[in-house]
Write a protein that binds this DNA or RNA. Sequence first.
DNA 1: TGCATTCTGATTGTATACATTGATACCAAA
DNA 2: TTTGGTATCAATGTATACAATCAGAATGCA
Lengths: 248, 248
Amino acid sequence: MAERETDRSVSQTVRAQLALRDLVLSGRLRPGERISELQAVEITGVSRTPVRMALVRLEEEGLLEAIPSGGFMVKAFSERDILDSIELRGTLEGLGARFAAERGVSSRDLEPLKECLHEIEGLVRQDPISVEAFSSYVALNARFHALLTELSRSPPLIRQIDRASALPFASPSAFVMAQSALPEARQILLIAQDHHRVVVDAIENREGARAEAVMREHARLAARNLRLALRNRTHLDLLPALALITSG
Amino acid sequence: MAERETDRSVSQTVRAQLALRDLVLSGRLRPGERISELQAVEITGVSRTPVRMALVRLEEEGLLEAIPSGGFMVKAFSERDILDSIELRGTLEGLGARFAAERGVSSRDLEPLKECLHEIEGLVRQDPISVEAFSSYVALNARFHALLTELSRSPPLIRQIDRASALPFASPSAFVMAQSALPEARQILLIAQDHHRVVVDAIENREGARAEAVMREHARLAARNLRLALRNRTHLDLLPALALITSG
DNA sequence: TGCATTCTGATTGTATACATTGATACCAAA
DNA sequence: TTTGGTATCAATGTATACAATCAGAATGCA
C-alpha cells in the first residue's frame, strides 16, 4: 500500500516531516484536529519512531501544537496572528538590513542582490504581468529576501528569521501570492520593488536607519494588502496555507 | 547508580531535557563537543528514546547543533552572536511594547506590571544594594519582562520572544547578572529601572513609538554593559552560560 | 615511507514490543 | 433521570532489539 520506494537519500524522519507538513498545509487536516500517530504511520509509510520525531519538529516549527494529555493537533491561527507574523518578520528583516548597513557590505556581496533586483525589474515592467512572469516573481522575491537576510551576517538573527518564515503565511512568497488577489496587484508589485531598491541603496550607503525603516514599511504594505485580500476573499485559494485560519 | 526515583509527575523526556540542558550550561560539556546518546543515557538514567526527543528539542532550542553525519554537539557562540541575541531580543520586546501601546491595555492589566515596578523601586533605592536585594532584583526583572511580553497579546510574537530568551545569555536575568560585574552596577540598574518606568508610561498613554524605542534602548544598554564586562573579565563566573562563548 | 583500501568497532537511525495513561461507555444506585 | 464509579479500550510514552552507516585503525601495496 504505502510506497516502498525507499529513497535512501533522505532519512525516514525527513520524509515523514515533509509528508505531514504537506498534509497540514493542504488543508486535509483541519485546524484543531488531532493527528494520531497511527494515522501518520499509515500515511507516511514509515514507522512510529521517525513519525514521532517529525511531529516534535513540526511542533517546534509552529505548525502543530502539543495536547497536554498527549499527542499533537493542527495549530489554529486567527487573522490577527497572521498579520502579526508578517509584521514580526518585517521587524526582523529590518534589523537584518540595519546590521548589514551598519557593519558594511562589500560590493562583491551586494552583487547577487543587485542581479536579483535587475531580474525582478524586467518582470514588473510588463503590463499586464503574465502568469509565468508572476510565478517567476514569486521565486525571485523569495530569493531576494533570502539574500538580504544573509547579508546581516548574524547567525542568531538569520536563525530567527528562518523560524519566523516557517509559518507558511509569513513567507515572502505568501506576501506576493496574497497581493495577487487584488485588482491593483501590479501597482503593489511596483511599490514593493521600490522598497527593494531603496533597501539595497541604503545598505550600500551605510544608512542603517533608512534600511530598517523601509523593510518594516515593506512588511506593513504586505500586511495591509493581505488584510484587503482577506476581506474580498478573492482568489485566496492561491494561498492554501490560509486554511490554517480559524477566526477573523 | 543513576537514581531510580521515578518522579511520576514529569515525563522522562522532560527530565532528560532538563538534565542535558544543565549539563551544557554548567560547562561540563564544552562548545563543539559531541554529545553521545549512550553517554546521555547513562547521565540521565532514562532510555534512548526520551533522550533522543530531548536532544531534538534542545537543538530546536538552539543549545545543540546537529552534526551532518549524525548526532549532536554543543553549539558554540561568538561574542558577537551573544550581543546580537541581546539586541534581537530587545527589538522583539520593542515590537511587543508597541503592540501593547497601540492596541490599548486596560488599567487592570497594567496593575501587576506597576506592582512589579514598585517592588523593584524599593530595591534599587538601597545604596549599596545588598546581595539578597540583588538576587531579588534579578527575579523581579525577569518577571517584569515576562509581564510586558504578555501585554502584547500576540501569540506569535510571544512565542518568538520566548525562543529568543531560550539562549541563556539573552534572558533578562543574564543582562542583570552581567551588569553586576561592573563597578557602576547601581547606576546601571537605576537607568534600567528608568526604562521600565518609561515603557509602562508610554503603554498607558498609547505612545507606541516611544514604548518601542525605550525597549530597544534598554537592550542596547544591556549589550553595551555586557561588552564592557567581557572586556574586564570580572566576576563573569556569575553567568555560567557564558561558557558557551568560544571566540571573541 | 606514504597513501590508499578494507575491515572492524562503535554509534546513530529505525522498527517494534511493552507499559502506562487518558478517554469513553456502560451499569448500578440514588 | 442523573450521577458516580468502574471497566474496557485505544493511543501515547518508554524501552530495547535490529539495521545501517560512519569513523578510525590496521594492513597491504606502490
